[in-house]
Design a protein around this nucleic acid. Sequence first.
DNA 1: TCCTCCTGATTGACACATCAACTAAACTTG
DNA 2: CAAGTTTAGTTGATGTGTCAATCAGGAGGA
Lengths: 187, 187
Amino acid sequence: MEAHTYERSVGAHTDASSAAEPRWLDPREREVWLALRHLLWGLTPAVDRQLLRDSSLSGPEYSVLATLSEDPEGVMRSGTAARLLGWGRSRLSHLLRRMEAKGLISRACSADDGRGQDITLTPAGKAAIVEAAPGHVGFVRSIVFDPLTEEQQEALREACERITAAIEAEDGCAAAFDADGEPCDGE
Amino acid sequence: MEAHTYERSVGAHTDASSAAEPRWLDPREREVWLALRHLLWGLTPAVDRQLLRDSSLSGPEYSVLATLSEDPEGVMRSGTAARLLGWGRSRLSHLLRRMEAKGLISRACSADDGRGQDITLTPAGKAAIVEAAPGHVGFVRSIVFDPLTEEQQEALREACERITAAIEAEDGCAAAFDADGEPCDGE
DNA sequence: TCCTCCTGATTGACACATCAACTAAACTTG
DNA sequence: CAAGTTTAGTTGATGTGTCAATCAGGAGGA
């Protein structure tokens, strides 16, 4: 799908248009990109659906509870959780408000730093994740690990790490150039 | 992160709890899962950000325009586009309404089937994607293809296809069992 | 024809993420 | 200590996705 827009130029920008003409994707590369995009669009929703179906816990909620349950006491600073999850503070704040309303977590001002919020796993929150975890892990195993050999799993990990590193490099670079035009590395 | 919830049981459900105890993830598997999740959470937003920054076109909008531009006339039935994209009708409908308001596409009742909608790429829509495509493809190349050898790309494709197939199998199976309890294959 | 069923698409309520302000506490520096 | 800066976190507006309900056109059967 989307042959023109990845393999060939669309319409009439063959020479005159904006940025320097990039190397379009050849058919093999296009297959790789489509397979990856299919995964990107399919996996997270599938995991979220399983959680919601079997435990009435949303994907993001599960992630928060799982992160929180890493602490032996089930207590964590909001910012720490945000960093562990790799999320923005705002996103977490909105979600925590809803979760507090549902009784899954509670919030209290931190004693040592007046700005901070201590997030605490409530008994209900603990019960929810204890109930959800087996089904979730089983699902992840059946979707991600059972279909792949150990070598394929390692190859996948390697590819993910390289791509993630490239994203972070690009992000840092974009931040450095701020609102400039061209990308920073050589194409 | 989230050690307990993937590696070991959380709290006290070591024997008595709900479903049959699954095989928890060992440390190596956990690394794979974290790397994959990092990619899932990072790649799509990165692509969307690049598009929005360089072309004032959102990721979903780009996908719709790209799909539409596959047709030589730039005309397509709404349902066909939904199927090609792998999206639900509802999602596409909401997005098309916004895109029509922006003048990127236009909608008209299909002649041969009164229920159908023919989506048409407007000149503005065509111009938008022609302008956005080079930057988008260049970004995808720098993020996904440049950091990987050809062998790694193929390994990634293979893994994506297997996982995607497993998701579809699981989905079909869940639909067959409808609102029943246990998953269908072993484990 | 009328009734039912199926399908294509839309709608509204809600969950969620992002962005840009904004508040308040804590550091820094004179 | 006072003024400016940084950091933690919240809030509101907005865009977007999901689900369930709905509407409307087409297809099949009595």
